[in-house]
Amino acid sequence: MYNLIGAGLIVIGGGIGLGQIGGKAMEGIARQPEAAGKIQTAMIIIGALLEGLAFGALILGA
């Protein structure tokens, strides 16, 4: 039961983080469309790092 609550919290945290990354990346691309490729790569890397964190927490909790 507590596991599930923890999982929910992790998902909320991860979601907020991913949303921030995605949103800022979109803003960046809108501001500088020519840098879209670099921004996308950086976004994916940071997203992956965040994902790793969230998954790590999920797995440790499960």
């Binding site: 992956a48 994902e51 790793g52 964190l53 998954f55 790590g56």
Partner: peptide, 11 residues
């Protein structure tokens, strides 16, 4: 390495 392996596995 842990984040690498967990990411792939969990996804």
């Amino acid at each position: 390495p842990f984040s690498l392996l967990v990411r792939l596995f969990a996804n």
